[in-house]
């Protein structure tokens, strides 16, 4: 905000506003801050009665342990495969479905779409209960393919919805002009619709990627072999057991695990915001 604008306001209002923002920011970022601080402390310093908010003697031992002791590289690769795969699959399926729902007239299209979007109403733990026996009978339990499909199941409805609202806003005349210009339906999708929906597609891809990356429950339930674990359950089971609780190591590993998601988000957030808000206001 322009400092002149701030100065022209009443000081009490300015201070109240600043405090409110500070509270909100600390509420959101304190866990992240605490994760970083803890990762830099030796384990015996973590449980002292008066913890240090800024570590006086930061150490990197936790990071070394996180890399050497755990299967971190394997977990990272598994997460990349499942999150990346489900993100790709979700975006592709959602783009096709949403475009169909938005731009083609066929009987029962609203009913079909509402049923698909209605799937979102169920808590994801509930979906998991019905998903488990299906995965079992399909022989997909304890496989990365099965886990990827499970992520798609959950991410697809909101993805369709986001893209549906985007495509509904895309002028029909563009599609009709392309149709008259001689484009087939596939060519229209590939050369007109998809290039124009890049922001929305990226936001859907980021959304489904982060969802899968952050998952704990599905992965913990559907995958049991250690070499197939994704980052969340992998770290949990490495650093916490019946006998041990290595908070420092866990926090260091958590930082390493968040990095890819943070990097992706930082690069694509411009599109992400544009994609989510597109259609909200008249441009």
């Amino acid at each position: 905000m322009n400092p002149l604008v701030l100065a022209s306001r009443r000081p009490v209002a300015v201070i109240a506003r600043a405090l409110a923002l500070l509270f909100l920011v600390s509420f959101l970022f304190f866990p992240v801050y605490w994760m970083m601080v803890t990762a830099l402390k030796p384990n015996q310093q973590i449980f002292v009665q008066f913890p240090e908010f800024i570590p006086t003697h930061p150490v990197l031992d936790n990071f070394k342990r996180a890399i050497s002791q755990s299967n971190l590289p394997t977990y990272l690769v598994n997460s990349m495969i499942t999150a990346g795969g489900s993100s790709l699959l979700t975006t592709t399926l959602a783009a096709l479905a949403a475009y169909g729902f938005a731009k083609y007239r066929f009987s029962g299209r609203f009913a079909t779409m509402n049923i698909m979007i209605g799937a979102q109403m169920f808590p994801f733990a509930v979906i998991l209960i019905s998903l488990y026996p299906m995965m079992q009978s399909a022989g997909l339990l304890d496989t990365l393919t099965g886990l990827t499909i499970a992520y798609v199941v959950f991410a697809l409805p909101p993805a369709i919805y986001i893209l549906f609202s985007f495509y509904s806003r895309l002028p029909n005349e563009l599609i009709e002009a392309a149709r008259i210009d001689g484009a087939s339906e596939i060519a229209i999708l590939r050369r007109i619709v998809l290039p124009l929906s890049k922001p929305a597609l990226i936001s859907v891809a980021v959304y489904s990627f982060t969802w899968a990356w952050n998952d704990l429950l599905y992965s913990l339930t559907l995958v049991t072999s250690d070499n197939l674990r994704t980052i969340g359950p992998g770290l949990l089971l490495t650093f916490f057991g019946e006998m041990q609780q290595d908070w420092g190591g866990a926090m260091a590993a958590a930082i390493l695990a968040s990095l890819p998601a943070v990097i992706i988000f930082a690069f694509l957030q411009r599109f992400f915001v544009a994609g989510l808000t597109s259609g909200a206001v008249k441009s």
């Binding site: 002028p171 002009a177 008259i180 087939s184």
Partner: peptide, 20 residues
């Protein structure tokens, strides 16, 4: 006959230019 096979060209009210 499909629009693309009718050998016609159309100018729309909104022009419908491909923005990209």
């Amino acid at each position: 006959v499909l629009p693309k096979d009718r050998d016609i060209a159309m100018v729309f009210q909104s022009y419908a230019l491909y923005p990209h």
